[in-house]
Nucleic acid binder design. Structure first.
Length: 478
RNA sequence: GGCGCGGUACCCAAGAGGCCUAAGGGAGAGGUCUGCAAAACCUCCAUUCGUGGGUUCAAAUCCCACCCGCGCCUCCA
């Protein structure tokens, strides 16, 4: 078992990862702002976080993960007001949708899913703590963090702030700041706006404070890993570091891992370009959850991922190959015994798989190891060299890789049905089995015309039949 | 302008000085197997890694210049 290497945004280097507390990794992953349905770009990051988590688990660590749900911000307040509902009520719908999407993509739930509005007290206390150390000042009822007092500011983003002049873009906020670079910890309510009555005055939290407060509440003052999209490096994560470390005097997060952007047809995804997709949009076009998960997972997180419908199609074919392979191992009968080369081959594949992930979560490399094994085993089977006793260990290796990628269990149809897409509607298992038996009988008596017609009819209903060598038949839903 | 990704076959994509006469997947062509299919297997599919220089015994990998795509630079994953 080799070292785990992570490219750390903080140091700009690839570094060996060892958690602070033996046997346990404490990670904070930036979650969605629940003002709308999450899109595939968001899920690129969330799938990465999931794979990171699953990988660390595979390496034997206990995981303590916190993901935030930002359920208060300008857009939420505006949209909720426009809809004439409270912000809790407004965000509830999107939180539910997010959790549903998350399950659809087999993203494991974190140990703590933290809603910002459930942690106002924690934020207030953190702001107080900062105030006691004179890192804050008030202006018009809002409280700001004084960046000039924090010497390490900019160490994550390596951004040169001297170019940002005081007052240059103050209008964005309509609040009075001493220095344009300062950011709001607490925002005074605008007239008619939703606010909390607290010991530091009425208002609502700034964007960054929730992550610091919730991360430290559940994970302690120094986390092992903090992740999010590259766009969050500045200002969000930079500000998290400033306010957290100013308060505690300790390093906030030891490793910062940032997922690159997903592009659509080489362009930034945006509503105006019409290339903005939610999971539901893709499912409505007949694409599968597993295909999307494969596509999002197959490109290493640090690379921009160019999303295309063709790519999604290709991903679906790749998933099919894996599933066909596992089905073959489970249903086909092989000569008894055990071959002498297979155990070593499987061990090699498992080692290559792990080695890929150890190198900064290189999923492309890990998948290549899986596909290599698939081909070699298929070849061995076709040559008659594969033995029944080899099957369990190959299947175990496939299971192991699937503990990371989660693609083998075919739940696509059930998920789509649960989400209300009828694309997946078709005959149930009992009916299929009966039709398959009828066709088998036809084949036995040599009535191939009838048998072939039945196969075509089933294909039209989305059922693919594969006759096996031993005269049996295997079927699957398309 | 500053900071940061990246440009490898028809498409996606790994590799970051010699194991590369460049992984893996998808698509395509031919073949094997099959009653026919499907699946699977075999063969073919980049003498070449954006372009031009340079360093080196050796470069897709290092250096320089240029071209192109994308992101961040106050609330977007």
């Amino acid at each position: 078992m080799g070292d785990i290497l992570f490219q750390n945004t903080l140091t700009g280097r690839k570094e060996p990862f060892v958690p602070l507390h033996p046997g346990e990794v404490r990670m904070y992953t930036c979650g969605p702002t629940v003002y709308d349905f999450a899109h595939i770009g968001n899920f690129r990051t969330f799938v990465f976080q999931d794979i990171l988590r699953r990988f660390l688990r595979m390496k034997g660590y206990r995981i303590l993960q916190v993901m935030n749900l930002t359920d208060v911000d300008d857009r939420i307040i505006q949209n909720a007001a426009a809809a004439g509902v409270g912000i809790r009520e407004y965000t509830e719908k999107y939180i539910r949708a997010f959790l549903e999407d998350t399950r659809t993509l087999n993203i494991q739930p974190p140990e703590h899913l933290a809603r910002a509005t459930d942690h106002i007290d924690d934020m207030v206390r953190l702001i107080q703590r900062l105030s006691e150390k004179s890192f804050t000042y008030s202006s018009d009822g809002s409280i700001y963090f004084r960046i000039a007092k924090f010497p390490g500011y900019g160490k994550l983003s390596k951004i040169d702030l001297s170019g940002i002049q005081a007052g240059a873009r103050v209008d964005v906020d309509r609040y009075e700041k001493a220095d344009a670079r300062d950011f709001a910890l607490w925002k005074a309510p605008k007239p008619g706006e939703y606010f909390w009555e607290t010991s530091i005055g009425p208002g609502r939290p700034g964007w960054h404070i929730e992550c610091s407060a919730m991360a430290m509440k559940y994970l302690g003052e120094t986390l092992d890993i903090h992740t999010g999209g590259v766009d969050l490096i500045f200002p969000h994560h930079e500000n998290e570091i400033a306010q957290s470390e100013a308060a505690t005097g300790k390093p906030f997060a030891r490793f910062w891992l940032h997922a690159e952007f997903l592009l659509v047809e080489s362009e930034k995804m945006s509503k105006s370009l019409g290339n903005f997709y939610t999971l539901r949009d893709l499912f409505a076009r007949g694409h599968r959850p597993s295909a999307l998960r494969f596509l999002l997972a197959s490109v290493p997180y640090r690379r921009q991922l160019n999303f295309t419908m063709d790519g999604l199609q290709q991903a679906a074919s790749s998933v099919e190959r894996l599933r066909n392979f596992v089905a073959r191992l489970k249903t086909e009968k092989f000569p008894a015994g055990q071959s002498d080369s297979m155990a070593g081959r499987v061990r090699q594949a498992a080692a290559d798989f792990e080695k890929g992930l150890e190198d900064d979560v290189n999923t492309a490399q890990a998948l290549a190891a899986v596909f290599d094994l698939v081909r070699d085993v298929n070849t061995a089977i076709d040559r008659g060299e594969f033995r029944q006793g080899d099957a369990p260990q190959v299947l175990a290796a496939m299971q192991e890789s699937d503990s990371i990628f989660s693609l083998l269990v075919d739940e696509d149809a059930a998920k789509l049905r649960a989400l209300g897409f009828d694309a997946a509607a078709g005959p149930d298992d009992v009916e299929i089995e009966a039709l398959v038996a009828e066709r088998q009988a036809a084949r036995k008596r040599g009535d191939y015309r009838y048998a072939d017609r039945m196969r075509e009819q089933l294909a039209e209903r989305g059922i693919i039949l594969e006759d096996t060598r031993d005269g049996g038949v295997r079927w699957k839903r398309k």
